[in-house]
Design a binder for these strands. Structure first.
Length: 565
RNA sequence: CGGGCUGUGGCGCAGUCUGGUAGCGCGCUCCGUUCGGGUCGGAGAGGUCGCCAGUUCAAAUCUGGCCAGCCCGACCA
């Protein structure tokens, strides 16, 4: 019996002043969730229903690939985390119990599960294993934001795969791709599986599932030819430069007093920004000073740079720049540089370029990479909209929220936690692991982000809190109330989840609330429709109105419901 | 962690500059009215002005400290 008169669905006319993201505003306005503190959210009944619908889709698809659900504690011994080397991560919440024992609140559960696997798995016959769980994860986020998109405490589905070898891991990974593709299709979202950075943790491969939306924290490079990559790792063919200067037989110094920016040099010399060589003096961990150069109209991608270097790097300090280049920032360049030079691929084959002269107020014109300086060629620039993807189509860049990720962990946890097995020859082998996450709350939020209008949410039917909102305009004792009471039972009888708005309120308020909550179908029973022998139906997405005969209305509603996106 | 902003009935805000004992809209309660797109009218309830200290005859208002929240950036294995 889900009667709105007794349900807890506190809708509001106005959103909290500090809510900016559409999902944040609508989660609150539609009565789905409330904030308790920074990055701490309470799911109210209707919001929790949506969350659970997402969970159920995930369960079904993971069960379908042979994964089995478990439950693990949030509170864990710090010892495990010290062993895996994750205890020092700032985001890990740490605490002590009354005896002073150190504990952590888990942000993921690799240590926990690997610990058990290490104890229980002995033989190659015990592998592979696919396990998953839903659990509250805790993260001391530096900056919670955008409603439930980034919180300090949230429920995450994590799967972990345990295999005999890399080939086995590849199979588990492929199984997860299969399951995840189904999950996100069923969730009704627009989504992309993108290549992603394997991060500092190493790893053998990773993809992220991204849902484009305005409030997204990530950027994805997409093309019509099916290219999809996180901008952090995206590669593309650059756009050509218009008006490149004529090549010179050798670099020639020119006076460029005070021109320390790309823009200033470009204007002073009358050349396009793309004709400049932008130089970044660096200090590479364990290697010392280096210089990375890219095209003047390009931007450096720090993730790609880190991957190209195979080490972390920081911008060189001003003293280090003077010491190594004989000039201040703005006038340094790769020609006759005394340090290791890395040059972005986009510079390869160009000539007639302009570079810093490595002396104050001087640039060099007519520079040709390869001829005038030697460099290691690398791909470290950020792709730009309009670039050409590897499949030959034009790149566009969209903000997106990461709703899932899959990651080939390799031996990252099995080694420190001692997860081994004996192979057919009786030799001890490490267990190959993968981990695979999904944030149900982010799917809920992304659905709202992607599907809303000025009236409220327009849920995909698979995650809507209810399939149908039944609105009666009749008061206690009126016929419209009696008819709606019957229809409510009939709708439930045909298997629909129904929210029944039986409140004694004006029609306008009930309609407005129904559109705010955004169930795929709204059925209205009032005196007018009864006299016509009909029930009025509104399809929330697009707000299309129809009528169906009162007789058989439940079946008609169900038939219509299953045709909706 | 750096930068910016905000804390005043449940929500959204004004009042703070220029100190004089708190106001508006929505919501809520009651009465009447209306009844298929947030009806209309009337009467009410509800506030330690984020917290602590200081200045002052007097502090929402001035000063100092603290706390919380939001936005941008850094960060987000």
């Amino acid at each position: 019996m889900t009667r709105l008169s007794r349900y807890f669905l506190p809708t509001t006319r106005e959103a909290p002043a500090d809510a900016e993201a559409a999902s944040h505003r609508l989660l609150v306005r539609a009565g789905l969730a409330r904030q308790l503190g920074a990055g701490m959210w309470t799911w109210l009944p209707a919001g929790w229903r949506a969350h659970r619908k997402v969970e159920q889709i995930i369960r079904e698809e993971l069960d379908a690939i042979g994964a089995a659900e478990v439950l693990m504690p949030v509170l864990q011994p710090a010892e495990l985390w010290k062993r895996s080397g994750r205890y020092d991560i700032d985001e890990v919440f740490k605490l002590r119990d009354r005896r002073g024992a150190e504990l952590v609140l888990a942000m993921t559960h690799e240590e926990n599960l690997t610990w058990h696997i290490a104890r229980e798995v002995r033989s190659y016959r015990d592998l592979p294993k696919l396990l998953y769980h839903f659990q509250t994860k805790e993260r001391d986020e530096p900056r919670p934001r955008a409603g439930v998109l980034r919180t300090r405490e949230f429920i995450m589905k994590d799967s972990y795969s345990f295999d005999r070898d890399l080939e086995g891991l590849d199979r588990s990974y492929e199984l997860h791709i299969e399951a995840y593709d189904h999950i996100f299709d069923r969730s009704g979202l627009e989504w992309y599986r993108v290549e992603s950075d394997v991060g500092m943790m190493g790893g053998l491969g990773a993809h992220e599932y991204m849902a484009p939306c305005a409030a997204g924290e990530n950027e994805v490079a997409l093309s019509e030819a099916g290219y999809a990559a996180n901008v952090e790792v995206a590669s593309a063919t650059p756009q050509p430069i218009d008006g490149l200067p004529e090549p010179l037989p050798e670099p020639r110094p020119v006076e460029t007093p005070g021109a320390t920016t790309i823009d200033a040099v470009s204007r002073m010399l009358g050349v396009p920004a793309g004709a400049l060589i932008k130089a970044f003096p660096l200090f590479v961990d364990g290697r010392g000073p280096a210089l990375v150069v890219i095209r003047g109209d390009h931007r450096l991608n720090e993730v790609k740079l880190r991957n190209a270097l195979g080490a972390a790097a920081r911008p060189a300090e001003p003293e280090e720049v003077r010491e190594n280049f004989g000039a201040e920032g703005g006038f340094i360049g790769p020609v006759r540089a005394q340090v290791e030079v890395l040059a972005d691929e986009a510079l390869r084959g160009l000539s007639g370029l302009v570079a810093g002269g490595n002396e104050p107020d001087v640039h060099l014109v007519g520079v040709e990479p390869g001829r005038d300086f030697k460099a290691t060629w690398v791909d470290v620039r950020r792709v730009e909209p309009g670039d050409t993807c590897p499949n030959g189509a034009t790149i566009r860049i969209e903000p997106a929220i990461e709703v899932g990720n899959i990651f080939k962990l390799g031996l990252r946890y099995s080694e420190p936690l001692g997860a081994h097995y004996l192979d057919e020859e009786g030799r001890e082998q490490p267990i190959w692991m993968g981990s695979y996450g999904i944030g149900p709350a982010r799917i809920v939020a992304a659905a709202i982000e992607q599907f809303h209008d000025e009236h409220g949410i327009a849920w995909p039917r698979s995650v809507a809190p209810f399939d149908v909102e039944l609105v009666t305009l009749g008061r206690q004792g009126e016929e419209a109330r009696r008819v709606a009471d019957v229809l409510y039972e009939q709708l439930r009888g045909v298997g629909l989840d129904v929210l029944y708005d039986d409140r004694e309120m004006s029609a306008g308020e009930k309609f407005a609330d129904a559109e705010l909550l955004g169930c795929p179908l709204r059925l209205t029973v009032g005196r007018r429709s009864i006299e016509a022998g009909e029930v009025d139906v509104q399809i929330r997405r697009g707000r299309e109105k129809r009528s169906v005969p009162l007789d058989g209305a439940a079946e008609a509603a169900a038939d219509l419901f299953y045709t909706l996106p």
